[in-house]
Amino acid sequence: MPADRSIVLFDLFGVIARPQRPGALGRMAARCHASTDAFTTAYWSCRPPYDAGQQSATEYWTAVLRWLSRPADADTIEELRRTDIDSWSRVDARMVAYAQSLRGAAEVALLSNIPSDHADVFLAAQPWLHDLDHVALSGKIKVAKPDPAAFQHCVVAMRAAPADFLFVDDREENVRAARAAGMHAHLFTGRDELEAAVGTWLPSRSAVQ
């Protein structure tokens, strides 16, 4: 039995948007006079509350710099913040077009882990996001994947059932969490595999061929 609605719920980075710009972590590490390995550990270890909207950019970067035993002055924090935002600014134009092409046959939504200040810049730079049926950005909704509440937010916001969704993400832990929440889910490894998965899941896929 098909679901009452068909909603393709995309992750952003690693699916529609490009992964972090190569070399960005090394450049930020150099600004902190730290090794890339040490900086990378601090960057990701301190990240969850920032992604989930529980910390401001200043609080996050202060935590990173303290982890590295470096002074957290305002100029350094702002330079790191801007470099970080730029490092996550690229999109895959072919994937943007593909997501848009689905809208004749399905609702299309987005669920992404992204800090609030990053989200503001990304929303301003990518007008296509405003055409989607729903956009849930972790820094704005105050919860990040793989927390079940992130998926529940989309269910409630779209007034849908979990089974109405096909969630697409490049991280296995997020795919598992979506399935545990009752959604269909696909681990993204490339556009061709995704098109095949959507073609199997979406009964009316032929409408966008």
Rank of each mutant, 00 (worst) to 15 (best):
171 R>W: 04
154 C>I: 05
117 D>P: 11
66 R>M: 07
125 A>T: 07
83 T>C: 14
54 Q>W: 12
94 R>F: 00
177 A>C: 05
147 D>V: 02
60 Y>Q: 07
108 V>L: 04
91 V>K: 08
184 H>W: 12
188 F>M: 04
76 T>M: 03
149 A>K: 11
179 R>T: 09
104 G>A: 13
120 D>F: 08
159 R>W: 01
179 R>L: 02
91 V>L: 06
34 A>I: 03
145 K>W: 05
116 S>T: 12
34 A>T: 10
72 A>R: 02
183 M>W: 11
37 D>P: 01
25 L>Y: 01
139 G>N: 02
61 W>V: 06
135 V>F: 07
121 V>L: 05
69 S>N: 11
35 S>E: 05
124 A>D: 14
198 V>Q: 08
121 V>F: 05
10 F>I: 06
137 L>K: 10
117 D>M: 06
75 D>H: 15
173 E>I: 08
109 A>V: 06
67 W>M: 14
67 W>Y: 13
50 Y>F: 13
190 G>K: 10
2 P>W: 07
9 L>S: 14
5 R>N: 13
103 R>E: 04
41 T>K: 10
109 A>C: 15
146 P>W: 13
33 H>D: 11
165 F>A: 12
135 V>I: 11
148 P>K: 05
2 P>L: 08
189 T>S: 15
82 R>P: 00
143 V>Y: 04
52 A>M: 01
200 T>M: 12
202 L>P: 08
100 Q>F: 01
160 A>C: 07
173 E>W: 02
17 A>V: 01
167 F>T: 12
205 R>C: 07
28 M>P: 03
45 S>Q: 14
162 P>R: 04
58 T>H: 14
29 A>M: 07
133 D>G: 13
40 T>R: 12
